Computed example of a mutant assay.
Amino acid sequence: MDIFEKQELPTTAFSRLLQIMDDLRDKCPWDKKQTLESLRHLTIEETYELSDAILDKDMQEIKKELGDVMLHLVFYAKIASETKDFDITDVLNSICEKLINRHPHIYGDTKADTEEAVKQNWEKIKLKEGNKSVLGGVPSSLPALIKASRIQEKARGVGFDWDNRQQVWEKVEEELNEFKEEFHKEQIDLDKAESEFGDVLFSLINYARFIDINPENALEKTNKKFIKRFQYLEEKAKESGKQLQDMTLAEMDIFWNEAKKH
């Protein structure tokens, strides 16, 4: 295969990538030096870049970032093949077998007509596969907000959940009141206040799940909105010959309100 020639079929395009990976691992000083550990933080970075592109709804950037992630997956498999642990074929067969096993309603006799039924089947299958806890599959290194969502989803998969969103909102209000009570005391216990604040966040994440809002996406969109508005504020302040630290809050609010209209 000519690696300089664009391929039209998925199989040949994937083979082209594998061939290039072999060349780089054999001939490029940087690629030859990489290990599973050295690639890890780069993979995390690429995943966040893909996440940004998805939130921006930039399809061309999504395509580019998917390619970067794909390269990393091939890279890990290449390194493992050199130590005879596994290769890319083992990886692909493994995920195929896992998908078949996890979808008995497609490849077997199990009935699951709803998304909820599918999720419940998944958790039962995972326990049969050797998981000691329903929550065992939640990575400990996940960011706390995402981890809370995954914990709640997995608990729901085995029926541990509220009946309706009104109950969940009542829990949010209960946690908010407990958090507020910590600051009405003469002596504030910061450890206790931190714990109560965590309960507030957990209950809000739970409510978001009930109304089909992804809390990670929601917060990141707010982050992006704040950054855009704050940078508008900085730009307008600069045009006015002022430094933000020398402006009053009322002066900054004028530009901030303008930013909301853009």
Results as ranks from 00 to 15, higher is better:
residue 187 Q to W: 08
residue 179 F to S: 07
residue 189 D to Q: 05
residue 172 V to D: 02
residue 193 A to K: 02
residue 150 R to M: 09
residue 174 E to N: 14
residue 152 Q to C: 03
residue 151 I to N: 09
residue 173 E to P: 03
residue 150 R to G: 00
residue 189 D to P: 10
residue 158 V to M: 01
residue 164 N to G: 02
residue 171 K to T: 13
residue 175 E to A: 07
residue 180 K to N: 13
residue 173 E to F: 05
residue 171 K to C: 10
residue 163 D to H: 11
residue 188 I to L: 02
residue 181 E to D: 13
residue 152 Q to N: 10
residue 178 E to Y: 04
residue 169 W to V: 04
residue 161 D to V: 10
residue 188 I to V: 15
residue 195 S to G: 14
residue 181 E to W: 04
residue 151 I to T: 12
residue 196 E to Q: 08
residue 152 Q to G: 09
residue 189 D to F: 09
residue 152 Q to H: 10
residue 174 E to K: 15
residue 195 S to R: 12
residue 180 K to Y: 02
residue 155 A to F: 11
residue 157 G to R: 01
residue 192 K to V: 13
residue 152 Q to L: 07
residue 187 Q to Y: 09
residue 196 E to L: 09
residue 189 D to M: 02
residue 175 E to L: 05
residue 165 R to K: 15
residue 166 Q to I: 11
residue 199 D to C: 10
residue 151 I to Q: 07
residue 168 V to K: 02
residue 157 G to D: 12
residue 183 F to K: 14
residue 159 G to T: 08
residue 182 E to C: 08
residue 176 L to G: 09
residue 186 E to I: 08
residue 153 E to C: 03
residue 181 E to K: 10
residue 178 E to G: 04
residue 180 K to I: 12
residue 176 L to R: 14
residue 182 E to A: 07
residue 196 E to P: 03
residue 185 K to V: 01
residue 159 G to Y: 04
residue 162 W to A: 13
residue 162 W to G: 04
